[in-house]
Amino acid sequence: MKLKFQVLSMVIIMFIALSSIVTAKEKKIQAPKLNSHAAVVIDQNSGRILYGKNDNKILAMASTTKIITAIVAIENGKLTDQVTVSKKAASINGSSAGLKEGEKVSLEELIYGLMMKSGNDAAIAIAEHIGDGKVENFIKLMNHKALELGLYNTHFVTPHGLDADTHHTTARDLAKATAYALKNKVFQKVSACKEISSGESGAFNKSYNNINKFLFRLPDADGVKTGYTGNAGKCLVASVTHQYGRYIAVTLNSGDRWKDCENLVNYAKENFSHIKIETDSLNILKSRVLGGEEKYLQSTIDKEIYLPVLKGEENNIKTEVQIPSVINSPVYKNDHIGNLLIYVNDKLETTFPFISNKNIENKIYNKAM
Rank of each mutant, 00 (worst) to 15 (best):
M1D: 10
K4W: 00
V7M: 03
V11T: 15
I12E: 13
A17Q: 13
L18R: 10
S19H: 05
I21L: 15
T23L: 12
K25E: 14
A31T: 07
P32I: 09
K33Y: 03
N35F: 10
S36L: 02
K57G: 00
L59N: 06
M61E: 15
M61W: 01
T64S: 10
V72H: 02
N76D: 08
G77T: 14
Q82A: 11
V83S: 02
T84A: 03
V85M: 05
N93V: 04
A97Q: 05
V105G: 07
E109T: 05
N120F: 03
A122E: 03
I124F: 04
A125P: 02
A127Q: 11
A127S: 13
A127D: 11
E128T: 09
H129S: 07
G131H: 06
G133C: 05
G133N: 09
A146W: 09
L149T: 10
L151G: 06
Y152L: 12
N153G: 09
T154A: 07
D163N: 10
T170H: 02
T178D: 08
K183M: 03
K194E: 13
S201C: 13
F204T: 11
F204P: 01
N205Q: 08
N209D: 11
N210T: 08
D220L: 00
A232P: 00
A232H: 08
L236C: 00
T241H: 05
G245D: 09
G245S: 14
Y247T: 00
T251F: 01
G255V: 00
D256R: 07
S287M: 13
E294I: 04
Y296N: 13
D302Y: 04
L310Q: 13
E314P: 04
I317A: 01
K318N: 12
T319K: 14
E320V: 15
S325W: 06
V331C: 01
I337E: 09
L341P: 03
F352A: 02
I355P: 01
N359I: 08
N366F: 09
A368H: 04
